[in-house]
Write a protein that binds this DNA or RNA. Sequence first.
DNA 1: GAGCCTCGAGATCT
DNA 2: CTCGAGGCTC
Length: 274
Amino acid sequence: MEKILDKDEKWPACPVCGAEVVKPEGEIMYYCSNAACPAQVQQRLEHFVSRGAMDIRGIGESLSAILLAEGLVKDVADLYYLKAEQLAQLEKMGDKSADNVITAINNSKERPLARVIFALGIRHIGAETAEILATEFHSIDELSNTSREKLMSIPTIGPKIADSIVTFFQQEVNRNIIKRLREAGVRLEKEVVKAEELPLAGMEFVITGHLEAFTRQEAGARIKALGGSTSSNVSRKTSYLIVGADPGSKLARAQALGTKQLNEEQFLELLRQK
DNA sequence: GAGCCTCGAGATCT
DNA sequence: CTCGAGGCTC
C-alpha cells in the first residue's frame, strides 16, 4: 500500500547528504538517491575491500573513511594509484603499515573474476550471483556488453537483476572506474586455471544409459571443461561410471571391476561442486 | 491457449 | 529476487 503524502508533507531526506530518498516499489526501505552521497561512497569502498570481494587486508571501515576524507581516494579505482608515501603521512600510519597496505592492494589485482564482479557492488549482485555470472561470461567486458535478453536467459537471473546489470554498465562513472582498474593492472578476465588444478583433473568417466539433463556430447563437454576425460569403455582406469536410464553392458563390467558409480543426480551434484 | 496478474515457496541480498 | 502454479481475460 503506497503512502499518500499530504500537500505540504515532505518525503524523508537522506540523513547524511540531505538528498531526496526513494522507495522502490514493494520495498519498505528508503534509499538515498544520490550516488555521490558520502555514506554511499564509503559503503562501496568498504564493500570493495571486504573479505568476500577483493579482500584487501589493512583497509576497513576506519581507513576507508580516512582515505575519503583526505581526498586520497574518490572511488575504488583510486586505491590502485595510491603511493606508500601518501599513506605513511596519515595519522597512526608508519612506513611499515603503509607498505603492507600497498602490498595488499597489489595482491588483490589477481582476484578471480567472480570476486571482481561482486566487488563492483552492482545492486542485487551478491556473492552467489557473481559466481554464476563468472561462469557465463569470460570477462567484465563481455558482461558489460551483454544484453538484457541474454542475461534473462540465465537461470536465477530475472528482469530486476538483468536491468540492474545493464544500467550499471551504462553509467559513465562505472565505465570509467572499470577503465582505470584495467589500466592499473587489475585482472578483469577469467583466471586461467592450470590443467592439473581443474577439479576433475586425472579422472576418466564413462557413461552408460540415457541421461535426462543433457546429451552424451554435452555431458562429455562439461567433464572436459572441468579437466576430466571420457572413454567409451570401462577399464581399470575408469574413475566413475555414470549410470543413466536403461544402462547397457558397461554396468555389468563396472560391477565386475568394482568401478565407482554415479547416478545422474550424483553426477549433476559433482558438476555443481565444480 | 496465449498473455497477464497475483501469490507463495525457496534462495539470495542488504 | 526468481520462478512456477493457479486464476482471469480475451
